[in-house]
Design a protein around this nucleic acid. Structure first.
Length: 423
RNA sequence: GGAGGGGUGGCCGAGUGGUUUAAGGCGGCGGUCUUGAAAACCGUUGAGCGAAAGUUCCGUAGGUUCGAAUCCUAUCCCCUCCGCCA
């Protein structure tokens, strides 16, 4: 959520930034509504003041035994007016907050301007694009031949965009989860958490999935719960409606979770293999930071995620998303893209974002400055560290051998009972 | 699923229609005293909106009333017992 005062005071700047984003937001209509609200509020409070003081008089008169009927009759009118005004005020406020919840975050000034993926800026890349002496196969072919991925039976059990891992495939997925968690907890200073996979609507609103992106979520209609599309939701909401101490910051959490996405509107994309699934595993990094430190924390978080790919020795590049490609809640996002030989291109495997106070404002996550004074909204950040299924894809494709077997990266062997190769 | 009990400030806890403008305690902060500390004593101590006056907030949302923490309705959460259950 964007600060309403900030909108009031920086109309031009925001119009410009939203234009860069390609966001449709009628700021002027919004500001007119805000004016109306403040007028209503003033009138209401005046009347309430009158009511409160007069009510005390009635109480005093009654105590003394004086007749108060005349005053009571007059107050009846005042009370009616207040109710009318309050109703109008409530409606206006609701309208304002509805609109405000629909406004996207404002891109940071360091974000490159652009309209689409093609305008994203390359930050750096790691490792040469590998050359194969044979035609590299896609992971789903390799997986089916090796008997570690079974899409047909997954379709029978659930439907399309689900997958069934067998044997060494399941073990590889589990090994990666453990490897990632261990690396982030022991080398990068994150605290491990394990959260619910079903959350309420307030949590979804807090991180920005609701109200705008309901169609992307799985909902448990009978109970009003939503399946989390990322651990970002439950982990960020740990501190919803709380005031932290400045000494608590920064907070680093790492969380493994299954993630659930409806993938509405992506029909026909990545229909083969496990690139795009309704359910997938992810290890997520989440940070709560003081505002002045958050961009430095973003760089550190990004390099923590990159470290996983370096340890697995997979080729990747980092891009800074342009204004037009930025997600709704993010002020700045780096994507890490891993090389997939079968597609002959880089594919997203992690997305690392600074949300500044956009989520904190929605979720009311604040801290009290050491120096004293009013509570301040924290900055929230998160990034995949990494998407596990896509890491499996990258390993299978980059470590495949001419005979269709897959060499296990050194660092993972200890997590797989010493296994060196999937044959 | 059934029966009961309960949600009040950072925490505990009083408050069943009108000086509650939320008592009291703990904790925190400041001070007195002290070589320093503890103890004791004194003071202070929530959030939102507003330039301010002021106003709102007692789980949440409605309602009754001139007036609601207090009464009514709905709803969420927590606890106890019973049933079911990994």
């Amino acid at each position: 959520m964007v600060d309403i005062n900030y909108i009031r005071e920086n109309r031009e700047y925001i119009l410009n930034k939203y234009a860069q984003r390609g966001a449709k937001a009628d700021i002027d209509a919004f500001l007119r509504l805000d004016d109306k609200r403040r007028q209503l509020l003033q009138k209401t409070e005046q009347l309430r003041y009158e009511k409160n003081t007069a009510s005390q008089n009635v109480a005093a008169m009654k105590r003394k035994g004086d007749p108060a009927e005349q005053e009571i009759v007059r107050l009846k009118d005042v009370s009616q007016s207040i109710k009318k005004l309050e109703k109008e005020l409530r409606q206006t406020q609701q309208e304002i907050s509805d609109q405000l919840l629909g406004f996207p975050n404002i891109p940071h000034d360091s974000v490159p301007a652009g309209v689409s993926e093609a305008d994203n800026a390359l930050v750096r890349s790691y490792k040469e694009i590998p050359h194969f002496d044979f035609e590299p196969k896609p992971h789903h072919e390799l997986g089916q031949v090796l008997g570690i991925l079974d899409f047909e039976r997954a379709g029978k059990i659930s439907g399309s965009r689900f997958c069934l891992y067998m044997g060494a495939g399941a073990l590889l997925e589990r090994a990666l989860i453990n490897f990632m968690l261990n690396t982030h907890t022991t080398k990068h200073g994150y605290t491990e958490v394990l959260t619910p996979y079903m959350v309420n609507a307030d949590s979804m609103r807090g991180t920005g999935q609701l109200p705008k992106f309901e169609e992307d979520l799985f909902k448990i209609e009978s109970d009003g719960y939503y399946l989390i599309p990322t651990a970002e939701v439950p982990v960020t909401n740990i501190y919803r409606n709380e005031i932290l101490a400045e000494a608590d910051l920064p907070i680093y959490y790492v969380c493994y979770s299954a993630c659930f996405r409806r993938e509405a509107g992506s029909y026909g994309q990545d229909t083969q293999g496990i690139i795009r699934q309704h359910q997938f595993n992810k290890v997520e990094l989440v940070k709560f930071s003081a505002p002045e430190a958050s961009y430095n924390e973003l760089e550190k978080l990004l390099s923590n995620a990159e470290q996983i790919l370096k340890l697995l020795d997979l080729p990747y590049r980092v891009v800074s998303l342009c204004t037009g490609d930025l997600g709704f809640s993010a002020a700045k996002t780096y994507d890490i893209e891993v090389w997939l030989p079968s597609q002959n291109k880089y594919r997203e495997i992690s997305s690392c974002s600074n949300f500044e106070d956009f989520q904190a404002r929605r979720a009311k996550i604040r801290y009290r400055p050491k120096a004293g004074g009013k509570p301040v909204f924290v900055h929230t950040l998160n990034g995949s560290g990494l998407a596990v299924g896509r890491t499996v894809v990258a390993i299978m494709e980059n470590y495949q051998q001419p005979d269709g077997s897959i060499v296990i990266p050194d660092i993972l062997r200890a997590y797989m009972g010493g296994m060196e190769k999937i044959v």
